[in-house]
Amino acid sequence: MSDSTTAPVMNGHAGSERVLDVPKGTRLLALENASKYFGSVIALEDVSMDLKAGEVHALLGDNGAGKSTLIKILSGVYQPDEGRYLVGDEEVHFNSPRDALARGIATVYQDLAMIPLMGISRNFFLGQEPEKGWGPFKRFDLQTANAITREELHKMGIEIRDPEHAVGTLSGGERQSVAIARAVYFGANVLILDEPTAALGVKEAAVVLKYIAQARARNLGVVFITHNVHHAYPIADRFTILNRGRSYGTFEKNDVSREQVVQMMAGGEDLERLGNELEEFARLDAEKHARLTPVAAETDVSMMQMGRELENEGDRVSG
């Protein structure tokens, strides 16, 4: 693997086999009492969190909880109005995602991970194309790009016939995996994954979770943003739970049950009453459906099945 032909934006650039060379548990980044306001709207208030090497840190919250604002602060799109953002022990002020990338903080957005009509290797190296040749004859070294892409995907267990095939031919889970592999390959120490499993089926989500576990095993720090507890719970080491722009705090997995996490995400006791009402509706609906069609019941079973599969997957991966 040759990295002499290209000027890497990020530090490192040692391929996806790289292991982050700091003691496990070293603090990679931290947000201290960060707030962000948009006019009179409080998007985020007094939120603190940190990320350690070798952990998956789930950032949970319902729609509108402030997850997107928090990611955008971490990835350099926004600056916090109050509070401090530390990378290692140093306070930083990022002006663009490029600044964050330069510090090894890479963000993979759910729907912006890949460009579907472009080839896989062209996507993989977009913005960091290996070049060869001289002066005006400098050209994109597609052979190298193809070889590295094939090799990196092979390591992830994705076999492709032709690295120049359009990314659109890959499944949603494969696309997310390739995007994560790309970030790791180009030297990310911190992966910020925005809803990486959102639009995926059970098996595909499992593939992505497995790859997140691999990144953790290489001692990288992973921020896993999701509103789906069932995807986050099996793989995360810690949870930070957001609700209406505020943080409920960060919890170790051992200290909190899945049900407690769900409850906090939903906004606590206020919503418990509503929850009871909804349950009552659901019970009535289920009775009606059970009379009309057996399909509804099956759907419920398959949802439970999915949860169990993921949990097993997570245990197996982390065990």
């Binding site: 496990k24 070798g54 952990e55 092979h154 390591k155 992830m156 267990g157 994705i158 076999e159 492709i160 016939r161 095939h165 031919t169 499944s171 889970g173 494969e174 098996k203 595909e204 499992a206 593939v207 497995k210 576990a213 691999q214 953790r216 095993a217 290489r218 001692n219 080491d237 997957e313 991966v317 982390s318 065990g319």
Partner: peptide, 23 residues
């Protein structure tokens, strides 16, 4: 939680890799 390397390419991943030769 351990930091052991996870072997890539176990069964469920392989299944997603499907494409056929095109003439």
């Amino acid at each position: 939680m351990t930091s052991e390397a996870v072997p890539a390419g176990s069964q469920s991943i392989r299944e997603t890799a499907r494409s056929r030769d095109v003439s």
